[in-house]
Design a protein around this nucleic acid. Structure first.
Lengths: 210, 210
DNA sequence: AGTATTCTTGACCCGGGGGTCAACTTCCCG
DNA sequence: CGGGAAGTTGACCCCCGGGTCAAGAATACT
């Protein structure tokens, strides 16, 4: 690769990182090129697809932050506190970085590496939930799918409130956590959790509009 | 108005009612015209704006259904049950009719009549909440704005799950209701409710993407 | 029936985003 | 330092949705 191409790729990566973080993974590619001070043809030439760009610029960071949150959640002595920490932390990541929000909401433009993160997050969520359930801290019928659905809606919510009341999403999180404690009644749920296949469909559509 | 124009208007109203209900208030106008078997020019000629069409076809029905839900909620003897009924009912309306969901999520293309409904719903929600709070059934710091935010996310969620697990939203509703009961601890919320102005911004953006 | 009025049509304009490619520029190496 | 390879550019294509309007079709009135 020639030296100037290398430089352009770097400029594009920088611009993409900025814009993805500011506005999510769906920013127009032409706008990324514009901010990089480069023709959009060059972007297509160097990266080919939006997914490739995402993978180089977002995937690693997002994966690290999500993995770290999961790890830390599992290190709490009290499983219930780890569970609460995890939810708050992931929601916070979503709120402060639309790119992460898009990653968690899964399968954006079907970038392969993103799917991997999604799966890892799903697994981590399930482990954290089961640990809390075994400790008797939260209701038994809450599932990893439930949590991912919540993350999906939280992504939308956090983006919607970002310019207005950047912490507004915390209220909803609090209500959810309150609803998951074991102390009170705990009426049985009348609807089954989503299957993995259903999760795939649903999260894709939830993300589809923004 | 000429007879054929009358007929066309009727065909357009019918098509619009169908499509709004199937896919929400943002369906392309050209598609409505297509389904009505009429040129899109005619649609613009007869109705001028999307808002006018919405007002003739959706507004009344949506208002009726929402008002009825509110009324019925206030007729419960136990305020807490009325509250739960109201949330379930509104969410159900949203789930079975994307048009209603868009109406509740407020301020679509700024149709005047829709704003009126929005205000009425906000008021109704507040009354129902306060009644439940006076009965000691739900936590004191839950507000009408909180509920509308929840409706906003539920609209997205319900639409996202519609083809896959049309009742999936009920789980989230259940978690919310569980979190609002008075029995357990009730940690104070660390974030203030939205102001009415903030609500306006937020709900507009939440609806913006889909 | 014939004319005046009202309506309808569909081609056309716009802007936005995705994507391609021939012609041009820049680089690098012999 | 010159020429071939590598890279860049921006005009161009697509589709989509909103919106307009001159020309033509349909109706209603006399």
């Amino acid at each position: 690769m020639r030296a100037d191409a290398q430089r352009n790729a770097e400029k594009l990566r920088a611009a993409a990182a900025e814009l993805f973080q500011e506005r999510g993974l769906k920013v127009p590619l032409k706008e990324i090129a514009r901010r990089a001070g480069v023709s959009h043809g060059t972007l297509y030439n160097l990266f080919g697809t939006r997914e490739a760009l995402i993978d180089e610029v977002v995937t690693g960071l997002a994966a690290d932050r999500l993995d770290e949150a999961a790890e830390h959640a599992l290190s709490f002595e009290k499983a219930g506190e780890g569970f609460a920490y995890y939810i708050e932390k992931v929601c916070e990541l979503q709120a402060t970085d639309p790119a992460v929000a898009d990653v968690v909401s899964g399968r954006f433009p079907a970038a392969e590496c993103l799917m991997a993160i999604c799966g890892r997050t799903q697994n981590a969520a399930t482990r954290i939930i089961e640990r809390a359930q075994q400790a008797g801290a939260i209701r038994q019928d809450f599932t990893g799918e439930d949590l991912l659905v919540f993350f999906g809606t939280n992504a939308l919510l956090a983006r919607a409130v970002a310019d207005t009341a950047p912490d507004a999403w915390r209220r909803q999180v609090a209500f959810l956590l309150e609803g998951l404690h074991t102390e009170p009644a705990q009426a049985p749920l009348s609807v089954a959790p989503l299957t993995p296949q259903q999760m795939y469909d649903v999260m894709g559509k939830l993300a589809g509009t923004p």
